[in-house]
Structures are given as structure tokens and as C-alpha cells.
Design a protein around this nucleic acid. Sequence first.
DNA 1: ATTGCAATGACCCATTTGGGGGATACAAGA
DNA 2: TCTTGTATCCCCCAAATGGGTCATTGCAAT
Lengths: 208, 208
Amino acid sequence: MITVAIVEDDGDIRESLALLINGTPGFSCINAYGDCETALDGIVEDPPDVVLMDVGLPGMSGIEGIRLLKERLDEINLLVLTVHDESKLVFDALCAGACGYLLKDTPPAKLLEAIRETYEGGAPMSTQIARMVVGSFRINPHTALTQRETEVLEQLCKGKSYKMIADTLFISEETVRRHIKHIYRKLQVGSKSEAVAKALKEKLVFAL
Amino acid sequence: MITVAIVEDDGDIRESLALLINGTPGFSCINAYGDCETALDGIVEDPPDVVLMDVGLPGMSGIEGIRLLKERLDEINLLVLTVHDESKLVFDALCAGACGYLLKDTPPAKLLEAIRETYEGGAPMSTQIARMVVGSFRINPHTALTQRETEVLEQLCKGKSYKMIADTLFISEETVRRHIKHIYRKLQVGSKSEAVAKALKEKLVFAL
DNA sequence: ATTGCAATGACCCATTTGGGGGATACAAGA
DNA sequence: TCTTGTATCCCCCAAATGGGTCATTGCAAT
């Protein structure tokens, strides 16, 4: 028996979800909350296997709710269920600790499957969300930087100083300076940390 | 009809996969390659809807193969199918441009479903891979940093200078220096770029 | 009440960094 | 052939940064 708690401000939706879950063998909705504040206490008090949470809530933002909940109950499995598919919201939810993200057009059978998958250690996402998430890893292949400049930028992204980069790449510190000047011009930045920020934001280098 | 190409060095597995795909209505395996080199030319010449690729290949690394293929055919849908579940390999594959990652214990029905999902714009992953991927977004909540220090670190991660941070947070540049000194002590680093690198690697801050 | 921590601000000084020159060598093209 | 681009190195100098010490305020816990 997989126990579920619902956090959803719309009473109708909350009702239907509870009915769906309770009407399915092997699933049980043990609680349903209308806002984050009461949900937080209730869930900590009586933790379900899986939390199903809307993120478009009134009052406390759903994202903040996720963060606080995971802070108190690190192990809790939390699945976002929402109509919102803006990338900022998706990534904020995952950063806050959600372990899955479903859109509200998910058919009931898929929803139940996702709850089970979450319970079993998976991370279900609606297809378009999954594509966004996976796409966020993609390295930007269209770089104006040369091979060597990219190597230097990678070193910068590891936090190395001019001297350390010079030692690593077996070139003089002066040459490192020169490469970095070129990098700054091409990326339109003016400092190491700005270059690192841009490189990581635009995925110009591998790893970190 | 969804067309598929296979890149897999083991002849037996290659055979079975081709048989499975060709034996299923709606799917057609139009090519099967034993190594990356020939696969690259063949796939560019005659692109399938979905490429199914092993990453434990002899010769050219599968990761490099993905990178080169995506460089020439940016739109291609590439699904990794492998026994390897080490996180480095998973993230390298996604960074290189794979749009899904399946382990070889995936049952045939799931595999076909994943191919279809890929074709339809999804990003299928085995459950444990999905959890790794989603988990990689999680912010590290156990920070030794104070609230204010975290705010300063966030600014650093945006590439701001002392002066800009001071203006943003409405404090003097000297106070920024002070906070940064504390950050350096706690993170055991000695420069902005090193702090940024560590903050991002260990997910100490939101976003970028 | 006292202690401790967070946040604020200041001064000094050595090192690193950023931006401006110039120069050589080598390889790929126009 | 001459130009262009990449990679290498050197000098100068001003600004930014990193590290040290010191001090005040307010708040929370002891």
C-alpha cells in the first residue's frame, strides 16, 4: 500500500485526486491540504510515501514549500503536479528538492504509475519536462573560442589562477593572460568570475 | 513508421535489437553499425528518426561519437542504451547531446516505448538514471554559510565585482570584502573564481 | 548579564588581475 | 605571395582582489 498526501488549493481537483487514489487498489490518500503552511506541519507529523504537490499556490510559494519540507524531512518523495511548464519553475522545483514533475494533462493511469515509480525510487516527468531537463545539460557547440582558449576557460571554471593555469598547460603566465584577454573579448566580459558565470550559464565547457 | 539505427559493437545484441525493432509494427531498423566511425558516416548519409547507441564501444568513445554526430546532425534524436550506470558517463552523454539514457536491463516493451517517446519529443530514462539526473539539481541545504554570505556568494556566481555587489545589496564595499573573507574561510578557497567553482559544483546557491 | 554570532564599516599592503602596447613562429588560405 | 588566425612570449601600469587587524551594533542563547 502506497500512502499519498495531496497539496492543492483547488478543492475540486483535490477531491478528484483523492478519489482517484483511494479508488485504486494499492494506493491510499492519507491526507489532503489546501495550502503549504498546514501541509508542512501535517506532512511532517504524518509522512506519506509520496507527496503530490501543486506549485501555483496562494500564500507561500510552492517552491519555498518544497524547500522547507525537504529541509525537515529530507527523505520525503515529492512529486510536483501543475499546469505550469515554464522552465524557471521546473528547475526551481527540482533545485528545491522535488523528485519528479508532472503536468496536469497527465492521464490518471499515468499519474498513478508516476506515483508508484516515485515510490520505487524513480523520477517521473512529463515528456516535455524530461526533454527540458535533459536539454539543460547540452554543451553549446557553437563557440567562437579556439581550442586553446576553451582549455583555458575550462581551467578558469575550476577556479585556477593565471599561474596555476600556466603550470597546468605548460605555457608561460603571459600566454595565459593573452588567451584570457581574447576570451574576455569574445564572451564580452571583463573578469574571471564573470567569464566563469557566462561559461557555465551558456554551457561552453564540459563539467565544472 | 519510426525508423531506427543501431550502434552496438556486440553482434548478438545488435541482431536481437534489430529483430525486436523490425518485428514490431510501426518500427523499422534501417541500419545497424558495429562502431562509431562507420556509424557516423552512415547516419549522416541516411538519418533515422532515432539512433540507439551503446557507449562502451571499442575505438572512438561513445561520448565523442555522440558529440560528433550531434555536431553534424543537430536535430538527431539519440538514445543511449548501455550497461554502464556511472554518473560521469551518464552526464557526459547528456552533455554531449544524448536525449535519453536506458540501461540494458530495460525490457523490450519499455525499450520500444522509449523509442516512440523519443520520436515524440520526450527524453526517456531508466528510473535510476532519472533519479540521478533530477538529484543533480538539488541544492545543498547544509551550508555553513549565513544568510547574508549566501546572498553574496550568489552575486559572486553571477560574476559581479565587489563594487557591484555592494551596490546591489546596499552595503559598503568593505562589508562585501568582509563577507567574502568569511566565505573563503568556510569554503576553503582563496579567490572569486574558486569560490564560484565550488559553489556551483556543490550546489550551494540557486540558479546561476 | 554575558557570551557569541551576524552584519556592518574601516585601514594597510602585497599580490593578482585586466587592458594597453609589441613581437615571433607557424599553418592555412585568399 | 600575402594575409589571416592561432599560439607563444615580454613590458607597463592602474585597478581589483585577498589577507591581516580592529571596531560597533543588535540579537539570541546561555
